[in-house]
Amino acid sequence: MLAAAITTFTGCDKKADTQSANPQGGGKKLVVGFSQVGADNDWRVAETKSIRDEAAKRGIELKYDDAKDDMSKQLAAISSFIAQGVDAIILAPKVETGWEPVLKEAKAAKIPVILVDRGIKVSDESLYATLIASDFVAEGKMAADWLAKKTGGKANIIELEGTPGAAPAIDRKKGFADGIAAFPEMKIIAAQSGDFKTAKGKEVTETLLQKHGKDVTAIYAHNDNMALGAIEAIKAAGKKPGQEIIIVSVDAVKAGFESMVKGELNCAVECTPLLGPAAFDAVDMALKGDKFDKKTVVQDRVFDQSSAATELPNRKY
């Protein structure tokens, strides 16, 4: 009992210390907690590195927690950040729902929460400051624009969709449809899900090429993995990927770049994980009390075979 009481006291003291110390020290050191959903792929690793590097650059102390893809761990991490009295929290949420209680705690403690890469659903939007993310709709539109330019606005397209219901799949489809709407001779002749998987991307493309044969002139894939599968299917059908059939995809991971350098994949629209700078800009604005949009869109870039070789050495994911 006594021990517990003492710990609580020291805990409070520490918090009081840092808070009072902040205004005193001329170069006040901000403390920001970052709750990452997991580190299971290179995209997330790159995202974490971007946020860490930017914190170091700005002289901000970063408290990092990897939830290992576990929602309850992520909730616990945020509670712990609040208890430690951090100045702001950056959150890469695992799912869209279930955040209200813990975000209410953060709001009560006057700690702004900045979301990165995925949005959440809350009844009260004031529970978070802003969402820093790529705009999946814009990615689809950029893919469509590139393809329209490449083909002169004339193409018969197979669309390889992501997993049905997934936000990137829905938005990348919508953005692409918006983009080709201006070109009456750009038609999607078949659209099927490849589940974001290479093997499934190949299976679907192979089957659709058998069905639609010579008509197909372009393929739009919602991610690189499916595009890589599609390229193999095109080869199996005895055609030249990148020449007889133009392939555009989204994500622009390293393997996609390698394929562009080989002259097979034509174009990849980037979905950037480098959200650090934008995230800390948002932290600054939120702490100053500035008003800003609920969504901050990070500008994605478009790469094609002409720019792939120079960018490839920089690709870590």
Binding site: K197, T198, L228, G229, E232
Partner: peptide, 16 residues
């Protein structure tokens, strides 16, 4: 067989 057919491997999707 699967990776030979697909020509590349996606560790998150293969066999899922």
């Amino acid at each position: 067989v699967s990776i030979g057919d697909a020509g590349s491997v996606d560790p998150d999707g293969l066999g899922q």
